[in-house]
Design a protein around this nucleic acid. Structure first.
Lengths: 306, 306
DNA sequence: TGTATCCATAGTTTGTTTCTATGGCCAAAG
DNA sequence: CTTTGGCCATAGAAACAAACTATGGATACA
């Protein structure tokens, strides 16, 4: 027995209307077409669904059993098409994001929140992890998208890199706040907070001072930039800080009001990347989110100079 | 979106085997056929199900969602075809039988029991009612099949009549038991039990005695024949009894051992009928049962003369 | 560098579905 | 009593969908 959807819908309509001609009309087909389809259907299932007498149609008792089955299949199918449409419209799916600490406090939640605004049926997870762990989570396909400092390229990871410019953080009351571009000369001998010695931003910063022959005074050594902002706020030091952490100061919860950021010369860069598993196609949701994330990163690069 | 069963099964097989060529092989179709069907399917649902890279196929994350939906629809459909096959094989359905008292004690349960032997999924109901009530239950289509004494024909009832011969009941020890055919002369002046005066068997019996000029001694007047058998057993009377009640004496539960039945001349007939609703097609089960019932009635007519 | 396997495309063939046209039947209306 | 208009079934033609064969490009493996 090899039933088709078309047979089921046709039968349902014939039973509902009680007439082959009428069913043909509502289905937008001709009477002979419907007649033949019902005849073929009866032939396939092995018993009559309608009794033809006096040129009229009377459903057999078996027809009501068949209707139950047809309705069940058709309603399940309708549900499926609805689900598929939701998938197609990005209304349904799963999105697992792993994010390094700098962005996970403010930037990423903001982007993700906006993205999910009109997508109630998306199951999202946002996990904060160190850059190394994030690489593993992406390479092993346990997460759909990672956002970290740019790692060494790997075969199992696809990455999209963004070169971000570091900014110099200082209290709003600081005299240097009057300048729009800070140089090593401005910070000659001043107290600085930096990350640990292996970090690219430290290497670039110390090299900048060395190359310009200025004195580099490292007063604080940090794992991440964020806590350093408190020292800046207290007037204890300056901080050459990555763009995302700087951007996070837009969040009033951070308690970093009263700090301003200025461009720094020479340019210190802190590169971040969007990571996705290389050996598996990204889901539509992931693709869409990845695109929005990239746009928002670029928007941040633009807007910070307003 | 207008999905077909064929698309769903094809997709399922491609995902299962991970290859269009392999799926084509197991489905008994060619590779281009499967390829085109998947392409058409992707086109309809609006997103890719497989990524084609390096000439190989990788399912997208969405494909797994789609598989769930496809499996759900297909399994529901499979269940339906199974149910339909059961209906076709008379393994599933409903059978409501209304039966008059004479047959409902032994004959009808026996026939129905045999009929349902190999039909575990049939829901049956057997109701004992007076002949008048049975007519109404059939005319109003509340029951599928009725078995009663032959009623007046009605438009709303289809009936199949059986002319049954009445037999004379007597104790096995009775001298008349030696004869194979009993006549009014044999019972001249003997005590008889009969039904009430309006019943056709009473009318025929009394007429038989009158026509042959023999004395008709009615000692017991009954509503049904069955209790009369106890009087016969006690040697209190003879009883011209319908065939079905006589047949019921095969049941050891009846406590009617020691009674024998002999043909009677002139022939007294007691006609019974199978009733079905006229304005509604009978279900396959009803048709089948009605046929077996008719066969068993005819078999009873034959076997009683062994 | 063959060789084999994969998938996609193109064009043809096959088979199903739908159409139009027609005929039989019945019931209600003229 | 005949006409009319509704119903359904059948037959043949047209349209469509789905299958096939044949072929080409790409990749992996020997």
């Amino acid at each position: 027995m090899n039933l088709t959807i078309r047979q089921l819908t046709t039968f349902r309509e014939v039973l509902r209307t009680g007439s082959i001609s009428e069913a043909g009309r509502t289905l937008g087909r001709t009477q002979p077409s419907v007649s033949a389809m019902i005849a073929g259907l009866e032939n396939e299932i092995g018993f009559r669904l309608f009794e033809r007498e006096h040129g009229r149609l009377t459903p057999t008792p078996e027809a009501h059993y068949f209707l139950e089955e047809a309705e069940a299949v058709l309603s399940r199918l309708t549900q499926s098409t609805h689900t598929l449409q939701e998938i197609s419209n990005l209304k349904r799916g799963r999105l697992r994001v792993a994010c390094h600490p700098a962005a996970s406090g403010f930037f990423m939640p903001g982007v993700l929140g906006q993205f999910l605004q009109d997508k109630p049926a998306i199951k999202a997870s946002l996990m904060m992890r160190s850059s190394k762990v994030i690489e593993e989570l992406i390479a092993s396909q346990q997460y759909d998208l990672g956002f970290t400092e740019t790692p060494e390229p790997r075969k199992s990871i696809h990455q999209q890199d963004f070169d971000l410019e570091c900014l110099c953080a200082m209290p709003a009351s600081d005299p240097l706040a009057a300048k729009s571009l800070i140089s090593t000369e401005d910070l000659d001998g001043a107290n600085l907070a930096t990350l640990f010695s292996e970090h690219p931003t430290f290497l670039q910063t110390s090299a900048a001072f060395k190359n310009t022959g200025k004195s580099f005074e490292r007063r604080f050594e940090l794992r991440t930039f964020l806590p350093g902002l408190q020292f800046v706020k207290a007037g204890l030091c300056y901080l050459i800080c990555d763009l995302i952490t700087a951007f996070s100061c837009n969040d009033p919860l951070h308690g970093t009001g009263g700090i301003v950021f200025r461009r720094f010369s020479p340019r210190i860069s802190s590169s971040v990347s969007i990571l996705t598993p290389a050996h598996r196609p990204a889901s539509l949701i992931t693709q869409s989110f990845s695109q929005k994330l990239a746009e928002d990163i670029n928007a941040m690069k633009e807007n910070v100079f307003l």
